[in-house]
Design a binder for these strands. Structure first.
Lengths: 299, 299
DNA sequence: CTAATCCTTTCAATTATTTTGATTAATGAA
DNA sequence: TTCATTAATCAAAATAATTGAAAGGATTAG
């Protein structure tokens, strides 16, 4: 499988197409027309395809030639990007960083760190995704992301992965003010809670066994895709459940939701940062360091 | 913007990575180790990046080098594909063909032609999409497809596009057997029809003014995405409307839908084939010829 | 510990490829 | 017709790639 193509030949036919003639292309490429003629003939021979036919005194692309030029430009573009990315990696800064944020994390706790990263390295491409429960770790295991922010529970043991505690999240039990559970005597017992429909977040992970999250089974429930949907569902009285305090402080002060005390207080939950230990670029290191420091580690 | 990369250098580092050493790679490449050493050093110099560092007596990729190899393989793959596609185009057969089929067309009328094409040219990649009303022509105009099958109404005049009549479709007015419209005296008048909710297909085209399709405005309607959904909606009694006879013959014989006669019979509709006249490859020509001939031009 | 083996690199000589510049032939414009 | 412009051709010159021998480390076997 030898590749007849060369990037240099693609550049040549690209220039010819853009400038409209061998002569003009030779000028911009700082070469002499016969050199281009040579390159094109060699390419045509290697490929076994006629790329230009003479029409009057100028050469014009054949259908195959046009296809080669158009796709070839994408190839050249990709080659340039690859070269640039490689150079950037050599400086220690990765060209892009993929981050999975657990839906329980307040985005406002993460964005300042990313802003600081942009200050350091404006060219870096950051991709954020939000995941639920096991979804963050799964994304890391499958190498779909480089960093997990706010992963719940200790990460699955796996060599090549590292994690460390990050924030502590306090969960509160809330319901809409008109919801029948508000009539029950507080602190609520487990039995009282189980008598009402729960709003739970559907685990985005598919392969790993879903983490059953504080919901005892016989309870009725409605599944929603993320934390914002859960809060909204509870506001509308569709169900009840625990949510991170930070995600509902406004709703509580405005009266849209009320916090209810419960008998068995749910323990504050530790969330984690996780990444691959095999290679840590400067952007990843910077982001981890930034996330470690300034947070008040909101309870 | 000169590209320091060459595909040949990418092949060299790929072979080194796969075989684990310069010496082994040299063997498979039918060259001498020092030649590879030379190529790699030139690449490192052009790129300004160290790709290999010596570890013991063998050379091992740096982080940047690993990135270059991994992405480089995709580039090599793309280059090979491009070369192969170019060669295939030179034979007159395009490497792939994109076809938009109007949702009113019975797929069974089109698939035999595609099967025949596969017989001729097994390597060709065929992509089918179904579109609604203006959607087929829009896809052709925007160069998202190479062939429109069953486009409704004359194609928008546009230079570089060609179309010709294909099938004639007879539409019948149907409703679920329990639907109130079945109690009305036949043939149905326009006023009777307008008194019931219509099921209409949402136009997939965005830019062009949507074709208003036989629905006089004050009528209630429900919009559905395609013909299959329309038939299903009418089966379930959600509404009434005209559908191509071919799409409901089974439903009528089984009694799931009943055909109702109407006062102003809807004229049989001509559907069209459309393509770009600028370049017609052999696969496209073959398919057009095949579609032209064998159909009974179902009414 | 020593010798043998494997590996990569270096270097000068050789070989292959690419570029050049002059020339030709063909085309279209004045 | 004449002039300017274009691409193709060709031999010579310039450049680049390949080779093989030799050197220098680093494991491995004995």
């Amino acid at each position: 499988m030898k590749t007849a193509l060369t990037l240099e030949a693609l550049q040549v036919i690209d220039a010819i197409e853009r400038k409209g003639s061998f002569a003009a292309a030779a000028t911009v490429l700082h070469r002499v027309p016969s050199a281009l003629s040579y390159t094109v003939q060699k390419l045509e021979q290697d490929l076994g395809v006629t790329l230009f036919r003479k029409e009057g005194r100028r050469a014009v692309l054949t259908t195959a030639g046009r296809h080669l030029v158009e796709r070839g430009r994408q190839l050249l573009q990709a080659a340039d990007t690859l070269a640039a990315d490689t150079r950037q990696i050599a400086t220690g800064w990765e060209p892009q960083l993929r981050i999975a944020i657990d839906t329980a994390v307040a985005l406002g706790d993460v964005l300042p760190a990313i802003a600081a990263l942009y200050d350091q390295q404006p060219a870096i491409e950051v991709t954020l995704t939000t995941e639920v429960l096991g979804g963050t770790w799964e994304a890391l295991l499958e190498d779909r992301v480089d960093l997990v922010v706010g992963g719940i529970e200790e990460m699955p043991r796996h060599k090549g992965l590292r994690c460390e505690p990050w924030q502590t999240i306090r969960h509160v039990f809330v319901a809409a003010p008109g919801h029948p559970v508000c009539q029950a005597p507080q602190p609520l017992t487990q039995d009282t809670i189980k008598a009402h429909r729960a709003v739970i977040i559907r685990d985005t992970s598919r392969n790993n066994a879903p983490l059953s999250r504080g919901i005892l089974n016989p309870q009725q429930f409605i599944e929603v895709p993320d934390m914002a949907a859960k809060v909204e569902a509870q506001r509308q009285g569709l169900g009840v459940g625990y949510v991170p305090l930070a995600s509902v402080t406004q709703a509580i002060t405005s009266g849209a939701l009320v916090e209810l005390s419960v008998e068995e207080q749910r323990a504050p939950e530790t969330t984690f940062l996780g990444w691959r230990s095999t290679y840590r670029g400067r952007a990843l290191s910077f982001l981890i360091d930034t996330l470690r420091l300034p947070e008040a580690h909101a309870g």
